[in-house]
Write a protein that binds this DNA or RNA. Structure first.
Length: 578
RNA sequence: GCGCCUGUAACUCAGAGGAUAGAGUAGCUGACUUCUAAUCAGCAAGUCGCAGGUUCGAGUCCUGCCAGGCGCGCCA
């Protein structure tokens, strides 16, 4: 799968064989084989990989960990492996030093795979749906949505790269109370646009966007809608405004590098009768009961702390009713797994939604909810004051305009989702050393610059069309000399660190995907760039020594490809010049 | 009151039970006739919220407290 997993599995197999041999000879009194795990030690002096298996065996084998480690090591067969040396150290670790050849192979596989480096087959075609953003179309997207949008889109990218069949979906809340409310707000704004003194609804949507929208509508249609019935008028205003708001949302998100495969309308569940059929099904199966004139879902039977109303006393279905129908629809579409990304203010909704999945006969674990904590917007270190009531808020579009798409995406995804996020606008905007986005992109641009120089120096014989070199292709494809480079010349600490980091990329993708931790990819990119810049400042790539130059060109090109792949997952540009 | 998230350097945060807890920023000292200084080298900075427990080993797991955020609707 990847060179690091091969190496790890090879080491684990060798250790297992040694334990087996020791047990067979009676040196170790154990039944069965323990699980052998390999880790990369924090301290370099502790080798490339280490195992703690001797410590875990101590109790069973009734010997000290160090004794056990010595016994294992005595039976260790290193032939045909990458193991160059090993030692027993500390409280009973077995540390392995590897032959540097494996790093050369890692570099070659990064080069050979190019844009596909880090593509895995973990998912084996499993179908996963990621539903995210799903912001109410009644107002503009704000910063909180921005974080959810980036976390969702990076997670979807990661899962796709890990080999899952991913569907990105946006659930449009275009039904229910809030839409009625929306309609009343629109009606008031429409009348106001026509010069009437229409009262604004108590719980209305105060945003300026609706004022502008209705001014536009009034300009287009005049007062013709005042002559129609209130019902007819509000329906028309709502249709008009929803279409406009949704289009604006779609445009904002597209500009932000966030796209969806499916836009799913809540109203369509009402219109198509799916909602009604779901409620009937729940009734037939006895998952609901009547009380106080309302219809309740027995969600406590599946771990929720109270039962939930699905149909109100007045006969109107609640939000959860539609959501149950929606999730039924999701599973019926054949998704093996459904991941929802919600803001922290919705976390209390998880148990009832899991209960709903269980009621529907699906495994509640097939429904995952990723909670994204709140965002605090800062400017010059001070919180940006926002009043939702007065309609004063910084929208996502404002943020993108102020700091740019790349910086905004990076800042939204750089922290773990369950950590509150301080988003400092002034920092994100600064084109300076403090800004981690540019740090990463600059590494990429610097490498492209080196490669351009290499073309001029005649080291790379064939130049791709355009010759700007911010291409996605590995140079190995266009330069046969790369295949012959002697990578054993890469032996400084800086170069070895870089090679190790590159080798780790597929594993990073897999872990970030499986643990649902998109921020790990941001961190990885930062760390890889953080190894490149010191290398760049210490060593020259293009020198009189042609052999060394070629080896270093392979190295920096592999860094470039890996950075580009990481940035692609993050949805951030990898510029060839800055 | 109950539930979820958070508490690690002055600040913002990494750190799936491992060995001496890391990075960036801010502070201080230095490096551009060099493949891009949007960079680099160095110095300084810690009772990992507190108290118990589990373990050969705990920032990491468990329990209880403390502090902050967010929820606990016939709103969505």
């Amino acid at each position: 799968m990847s060179i690091t997993t091969d190496v790890k599995e090879g080491l684990a197999a060798a250790v297992r064989k040694a334990i087996q041999a020791a047990a067979a000879k009676g040196d170790l009194a154990i039944d069965g084989l323990p699980e052998v795990t390999l880790e990369i030690p924090r301290e370099k002096e502790h080798g490339d990989y280490a195992t703690n298996v001797a410590m875990t065996l101590a109790r069973e084998a009734r010997k000290s960990p160090r004794q056990i480690a010595e016994i294992i090591v005595k039976h260790l067969d290193t032939s045909g492996s990458y193991i160059a040396s090993f030692e027993v150290a500390g409280p009973g670790f077995i540390n392995f030093q590897l032959d540097a050849r494996w790093l050369g192979e890692a570099l070659r596989s990064a080069e050979a795979e190019g844009a596909a480096y880090g593509r895995l087959h973990l998912g084996a075609g499993e179908k996963i749906q990621v539903e995210f953003v799903s912001a109410n179309p009644t107002g503009p997207l704000h910063v909180g949505h921005g974080r959810g949008a980036v976390v969702g889109s990076v997670l979807a990218n990661l899962l796709e790269r890990a080999g899952y069949a991913v569907t990105r979906e946006y659930y449009i809340n275009d039904a229910g109370n809030q839409i009625a409310n929306f309609a009343k707000s629109l009606d008031a704004r429409y009348r106001q646009a026509l010069g009437e003194e229409a009262p604004f609804p108590e719980e209305g949507y105060h945003g300026r966007d609706l004022v502008e929208l209705m001014e536009k509508f009034a300009a287009e249609h005049g007062d013709s809608y005042l002559k129609k019935s209130a019902e007819e008028r509000m329906a028309a205003l709502t249709r008009y405004a929803l279409a406009a708001k949704l289009e604006a949302i779609r445009e904002d998100l597209t500009a932000f590098g966030v796209t969806f495969d499916v836009w799913f309308s809540e109203q369509s569940l009402h219109d198509g009768g799916e909602l009604k059929r779901t409620i009937e099904w729940l009734q037939k199966k006895g998952h609901v009961y009547e009380k106080d004139g309302a219809l309740w879902l027995r969600s406590t039977a599946y771990g929720d702390d109270k039962d939930r109303v699905v149909v109100r006393e007045n006969g109107m279905p609640t939000y959860i009713a539609a959501d149950i129908a929606y999730h039924k629809n999701k599973f019926e579409r054949g998704f093996d797994r459904v991941i929802n990304i919600w803001g922290a203010d919705h976390h209390g909704y998880i148990p009832r939604m899991k209960a709903a999945a269980a009621v529907l006969g699906y495994d509640p674990d097939a429904l995952e909810v990723l909670i994204v904590q709140l965002v605090t917007l800062l400017r010059n270190g001070e919180p940006v004051v926002m009043s939702k009531r007065a309609g004063e808020l910084v929208t996502l579009a404002d943020v993108i305009e102020e700091v740019g798409k790349d910086a905004a995406r990076f800042f939204f995804v750089m922290r773990s989702a369950d950590s509150h996020l301080d988003f400092d606008l002034s920092l994100a905007r600064s084109r300076s050393a403090e800004n981690p986005v540019y740090y990463i992109q600059y590494a990429h641009a610097r490498i492209c610059s080196i490669l351009r120089q290499a073309v001029e120096a005649g080291m790379i014989p064939e130049v791709p069309p355009g010759s700007d070199l911010d291409l996605g292709r590995p140079l190995a494809e266009i330069s046969p000399g790369f295949g012959r480079a002697d990578l054993s010349l890469l032996n400084t600490e800086s170069e070895i660190d870089l090679m190790k980091k590159i080798a780790l990329f597929p594993e990073e993708v897999s872990q970030a995907a499986l643990r649902r931790e998109p921020h790990a990819m941001a961190r990885y990119a930062l760390e890889l760039a953080g190894l490149f810049h010191p290398f760049y400042n210490t060593y020259r790539v293009i020198t009189e020594d042609r052999g060394l130059s070629m080896a270093r060109l392979v190295l920096v090109d592999a860094v470039r490809l890996t950075l580009k792949n990481a940035l692609e997952i993050l949805g951030i540009a990898a510029p060839g010049r800055m």
